[in-house]
Amino acid sequence: MTNLSDLTRLCPPPQTQPDPIDWDRVEAELGMHLPEDYKLLASTYGPGRFSDYIGIRHPNGVSPYSSLTGPMPSRVRAYLQDDYDQGTYPVPHNPRDLFLIGSTDNGEYLLWITDPADAPNTWRIAVNEARGPQWFTMTGPSRPS
C-alpha cells in the first residue's frame, strides 16, 4: 500500500473530482518543481482541510491566503528570516530553504525544507511549535527528529 492509499482508506477524498491543476503553470509561477507526492495529494483531494485542523496550501485555494501561489509562503518566510536574523526563536533551517505548505488551527507552520532545490521528492517537512521555540523535522514517514 502507498502512503496515499493509506490516507484515502482512512480519510476518503471528496465525492466530486477536484478541478484539474496546471502543474506546469504552478511550478513556473513558483519558480521551482514540486514533490510528486504533494501533486498527487492535491490532485486527489483538492483544496481544503483535514479534520478541520490541518490546512494544506493548494494551487486552487479558496482564497489567496490558502493558495500555494498566494502571498502567505513569502510572508511566512520573511517572518522566519527576521526570527533567524535576530535569534528570537531558533529556526533550525535557513529560512531561504523553507516554503510554507500548510498550517494548523493552533498556528503551527508546516514547511518544506527545499534543499536540495533540484530534488523535490527528497524534501523533508519542518513544523514549528506555535507558541514556543520547538521545531520538529520529519526525516521520513512518521519519524520526527
Rank of each mutant, 00 (worst) to 15 (best):
Y38E: 04
D24K: 11
A117P: 09
Y65H: 14
R57Q: 14
N94R: 13
H33T: 15
N60T: 07
Y79T: 15
V127A: 05
E27H: 04
D85H: 05
P73M: 03
S43V: 06
T122N: 08
G48F: 04
I54D: 09
S67T: 10
S51Q: 13
V91Y: 01
Y53N: 09
Y45G: 06
I101G: 08
F99D: 03
H33M: 15
G70M: 04
S51H: 14
G31N: 03
A126H: 02
G102R: 06
Y84Q: 09
R75W: 11
G55L: 13
I56P: 02
Y45F: 09
V127S: 01
R57L: 15
I21S: 00
D52R: 10
G70W: 04
Y65C: 11
E27C: 04
D97K: 11
V26H: 00
A78D: 13
T114V: 07
R124F: 05
G107N: 03
W23V: 10
S43Q: 02
G31Y: 00
A126M: 04
R49C: 15
W112Y: 12
W23G: 02
G70I: 07
S43M: 02
Q17V: 12
A78P: 05
S66K: 13
D118L: 01
E108C: 06
V26D: 00
W112I: 09
V62R: 13
T44I: 08
D97L: 09
P133G: 11
P35Q: 03
G70Q: 03
P47K: 06
Q17E: 11
G46Q: 00
N121R: 08
P133F: 08
A42V: 03
G55D: 07
H58P: 00
G46A: 03
L111C: 12
G132A: 02
A28S: 13
L111S: 10
K39E: 02
P59A: 07
D105A: 15
S67W: 03
L98E: 01
V127F: 00
A78T: 13
G61V: 03
D97W: 07
Y79C: 15
T122S: 10
G48W: 05
P59R: 04
S66L: 11
W123D: 01
R96W: 11
S67K: 10
D85L: 07
N128T: 08
F99N: 04
P120G: 00
D118K: 08
R124P: 08
P116Y: 04
